[in-house]
Simulated assay, not measured.
Amino acid sequence: MQTATESDGDAGPRIWGGTTLSERRQARRAALLEAALDLIGDSGASGVTMRAVCRKAGLTDRYFYESFAGRDELLDVLYRQVADEFLEPITAFAAAEDPSRARVPAEILVDKVLADPRKSRLLLVEPYSGTGFGRTTLALLPEFTRIMQDHLLGHIDDPTKRRLAAVTMASGNAGMFAAWLDGSLCAGREQIIEHCVATLTAYRSLYRC
């Protein structure tokens, strides 16, 4: 039931069923993103099409194009959204000053990877699958690499060596988690945590006299 009417000027937004037009648009956008995430969890990014997303969300293509210009934009927005969620635990892990303090952030990071397999697959597996994430991944990789440079490898004075170490660390861990998630790396949670701590220790000692 419509509880108020929308008019131009200062009359305020139209309310329908207790929500404004803007709120309904945001809800539809969120539903489309969640539907895409479900599809990625089920069959990977190759299963994400406009029609499949709309069907999953229970919306028409009209509402899809209300929020996104196309599939690529939806995937770009979704990838950035999930990457933002992982930035904090990645930063905390990289900032740990010694192995005794590295275990807790390593546990948080590993548990974050395990918490939602859909998001972890999106962030760590799909960029390597060639299904439309190349541009977005390249745009975000410098941010993850910068975290490594600033928090993990600041003791390396030579900028080239620091960059080499940061790129290797960032891409190596991403590859490790990707292999773990897709089942090609058989290891338990505790083994992954111990490896992360050992890797952190090794990189902290890199180029240190």
Rank of each mutant, 00 (worst) to 15 (best):
M1I: 06
Q2I: 13
A11V: 00
I15A: 02
G17S: 02
T20G: 02
L21E: 14
R25Q: 12
A31W: 08
A31H: 04
A31Y: 03
L37M: 07
D38A: 09
D38C: 07
S43V: 15
R51Q: 13
C54M: 01
R55A: 15
G58P: 02
G58L: 09
T60S: 15
T60V: 08
E66K: 04
S67Y: 09
L74P: 03
L75G: 04
L75Y: 06
L75S: 03
D76E: 15
L78G: 04
Y79L: 03
A83D: 05
E88L: 14
I90F: 14
I90H: 04
A94S: 13
A94G: 05
A96R: 10
E97Q: 14
S100D: 15
A106P: 04
E107L: 11
E107T: 01
L109R: 03
V110M: 09
D116L: 00
L123N: 05
L124M: 14
P127W: 03
T131I: 05
T137P: 09
T137I: 06
I147H: 04
M148Y: 08
L153K: 10
G154Q: 01
G154F: 09
I156R: 08
I156G: 00
P159R: 01
T160C: 03
A166H: 01
G172H: 01
G175Y: 11
A179F: 10
L181C: 00
E190I: 08
Q191Y: 00
I192L: 13
H195S: 12
L200D: 06
T201A: 15
Y203F: 15
R204D: 00
